[in-house]
Design a protein around this nucleic acid. Sequence first.
RNA 1: CGGGGUGUAGCUCAGCCUGGUUUAGAGCGCCUGGUUCGGGACCAGGAGGUCGCAGGUUCAAAUCCUGUCACCCCGACCA
Length: 665
Amino acid sequence: MRWSQFFIPTTKESPKDATAASHILMLRAGLIRQLAAGIYSYLPLGYRTLRKVAEIVRQEMNRAGAVELNMPVLQPVDLWEQTGRTAAMGDVLLRLRPIHSGDHSDWRSHTVLGPTHEEVVTEIARAYLNSYKQLPITLYQIQVKFRGEARPKSGVLRTREFLMKDAYSFDADTAGLDLSYQKMYDAYCRIFSRCGLPYVAVEADTGAIGGDVSHEFMVLTDAGEDTVAISESGDYAANTERATAFFDASHEATRPRSHTEQEPAEGEAPAEPLREVHTPGAGRVDDVCKLLGTAPAQMIKTLIYTGTYPTNPSNATQPSNATQPSNATQPSNATRPSNATRPSPDRKGGVSSQSAPATDIAPTIRLVVLVRGDHEINEIKLRKAAEAACGQMGLTLELADPRTIEGLTGAAVGFAGPQGLAARFRQGDLLLIDRDVTRMRSAASGANRTDYHVTGVTPGRDFPLETPPGAAFVVAVADIRMVVDGDRSPTGSGAPIRLKTAIEVGHVFKLGTKYSQSMDATFLTREGKPHPFVMGCYGIGVNRIIAAAIESNHDANGIIWPLSIAPFEVLIVALDPKDEHVMQTAASLHDQLEAAGAEALLDDRDERAGFKFKDADLIGIPLRVVVGKKSLADGVVEFSRRRDGEKRLLAPAAAVAEVLSQRTP
RNA sequence: CGGGGUGUAGCUCAGCCUGGUUUAGAGCGCCUGGUUCGGGACCAGGAGGUCGCAGGUUCAAAUCCUGUCACCCCGACCA
């Protein structure tokens, strides 16, 4: 390919608000062009790389035995109702608008742009996979996806339209799923290695997609939006959404000595007595520490949440300002009784009204949450712990408003403490205690009196660690905090955990029967009994691979493509294109390399040398041959690699041989 | 969704606060001619803008006001 006949709109400048290296370089190198927020065109150079990445993915998926198909972008919303994910996806699900608003007879009213394809693929499985003999099978596609991202950012890292490889495995049982999962996991490792990505696989939360086991494939770079916890010895790696720190459960030093929060076991406690201290205006941990002369690790942070159960999972009655479109109103198939397999045709939430018996009693509860002053609450863990504690799924948590807090604690926001609070609990309220808090003695906390704190707070004595017999509220101890840098690996190795930001390029899930059950997708077992498919799903963000590859392969001058995904493998720069000898030699090199199967780009533009070198560095083609008048007079050309820039003078024929040997190591 | 910011030439931006000497500017890029020619050259000339859109105030609006749309940033949210 000749540069002069191709289309590579490079620029010297980039928008000020592009901060991620990959974003800046993709714009400057002419790989992409933004059309709207989170919507990009792939220009010829960028598209070549996109196709190369997709091809690597395809090869490895095929190698792993997966079978490619293509599913529609346009999907009937009815399918999403069957799995309850219209509500779960919320605004992320893009819907078509009817021509006349409110016209339900218009097909557009019932059609969405697919953000993922679990429902569609399960529908296919339901139709055609009837027997255990057809299992296992993994289907995949490489296809555009649409999501109503509230805030696209960082160029191609977070967009409303993107290319994704999504695969779905169908097995007869969980043992089969384990195998299918492992195959995909291994394929992912090969894919990311081949793409030149320094990746790490971490344990992950399953989020709205559901399922139990999940791993994310992460590329460590500051441009990422995720934070992962990785132990220094490498024996533990997890997304901080899920990461947990070492906790020595054998320590029984501070088990509760009293079940009744009102009566501390006197005489038995060597801990200091409670003492109130005037701390005017100090509502934040740091301020209080200064006043009390203590450290955040010696404080108990008391946060009040309100929890709401799903009263109606259809979108009809959602409060307009209910900021949680996520899993809030997802009907929990797990807890639904025997009608689970019946698809719900109704759009008014009739099914779900049967699923939450406690709903009528307490649609809203209050949660008092305790963590150490130097720890932060992990709301994902918190929600799971809360759901476990009250036996209700689909809980929505929000930090309580000041009125609720004052009503519960009798003090202004910032002065809440656990001691004595239990007496103020209502039916259904929760006291959730981070397990690290149970190890504290004589801690400081709010006094439940404005402008006062207390010292000497001791778990078990001053507040209960278990639900007192006959109490209307529930007390639970759990791991509900974010890990912090320096925590120890939960494996017990003692290795310190470090937190790093990362780009998620792939995600694998064990779904189990979540979708097959709710969609009634079954096969017949050897015994002739219907059984729901045991499913897994596996995603790769193709565009993100490109961004991640650039993040981890660039320098001050531009991109340094890994050979495997470079838009071209070799760039021949004709320095004096008007010089016939130079141009002939360069063209001949280019033709020979192409004939040998190499992807060659010939810079035949009539530009100054410096200009062309800058462009060459910017677009980052890994191999380079420079043909110039001077060196050609000596019968040589210059071979170099973008990565190290080391020049070697070679005869043209030798340069061809060198390039060809470099591309097949 | 909450908070903040920005819309002026293909790109990056100045001008706006304090309305009128601004015929709306600069740099980059583009076109023409010339000089250059191994790390984003120089000189001369030139093309290119409904100042996001719609109202309003005013003798007069890129500039002030209102509305609206778009984009960006922080947060919330997020397979």
